[in-house]
Design a protein around this nucleic acid. Sequence first.
DNA 1: AACCAGGATGAGC
DNA 2: GCTCATCCTGGTT
Length: 385
Amino acid sequence: MPSVDFTVIGQFEAMAKDLELTTDSSNPCTRRVPMNSMDDCMPLKSDIKEEPDFLYQNHPELDFNNIFNEQYSDSFQKLIPTTVATPPPYPAPSNTEVLVHAPQYPPVTHRTFTGVNASGCTMFSHPDYLSGASVPTGMVESRDLLDLDNQNQQDSFYEELGLTKPRNVLDASALGWEFPFQCMLEQLQEELSRIGVPRDPMEWTTEHVRKWISWICTKNKKADSSSNGNMSFAELCSLNSNDLFRRFGESGPSISMEIELLKSGSSYAKNVPNIANNDNYNRTPVKMPSGRGHKQTIHLWQFLKELLLSKENHSDCIRWLDRKAGIFKIEDSKTVAKLWGNRKNRPAMNYDKLSRSVRQYYKKGIIKKTEQSKRLVYQFCNGYL
DNA sequence: AACCAGGATGAGC
DNA sequence: GCTCATCCTGGTT
């Protein structure tokens, strides 16, 4: 059997029923791939005889933009393509099965692992296949997804479908399953560093956004329409795929994909209710972080907590004094104010204004001063820890 | 000088 | 109506 040099994009399966894609024609191992069934699209591990490096190569012929022609514009409104890379090997648990009932993943034929990762994307894969995909959760109706924490829902789900419930149903994110975000994100962040844009979009100014979009356009050899926008990252996140397509044309899908990646790497995700790995948020409901028409906002207290909890070390400007009690100290008021200003696209932000906003929280019971008031030391109130 | 408290006002959602 | 951003007066460290 010939090796299959192919990367599947699961989401396309539903929208591109009759589309045939071919891999590199100069490669004798390639074959035409009818996009009418996932089984046809996804190579079995047993089919693969090439070295892994070979499989991880990009395939320009599978360019999103070539696929999103007018013929599929209807589908485009419903789905965002997110993944073109073939994942590196990952440990797929052998006794865990989760059925996903989503429009593009017929439940009867496709057993997949799934989880909602920190960026709010639903992860799909199958232990027998090399390829995987992720879909921004809100692109799939919540009723189409299994609530992984709801035993009753799972039972009735399988019952309705007349299927045997898998032995274990696990949230793949709890298994440390990082594909495809981690590898793609790291690559993206390196590229960002090269073009002088901060790795964390939280720190982006509108100029950084413009630069990034311009770079995507160059990379994809598409017209640069970034001059049309003077947007913050948060504003960009509030746009759906259709908005992005309208605003940025053929670069829209790429921008959309990278937004999802960046959200999962930054602490941005922590500010989005329902997807953050934080007790204050209810992770379970599969709700949209960037749903249609929903404007993304961040509150100051969330931002401060985000800095405090961020994997990126901000301890030189803000740090916990007593994490359990929620007591923190602003070590560098200027820097914190600058970061907040960047985040809100308020270049004139300073600590005087920031602290005024913090003081508004006293009445609301979100943040308070510590019992023995100390300069630059505040405390999150109960319920906001 | 930097920080703190809180009133007033208006923008933006 | 809510959350800030901004500006302000006046007090404290």
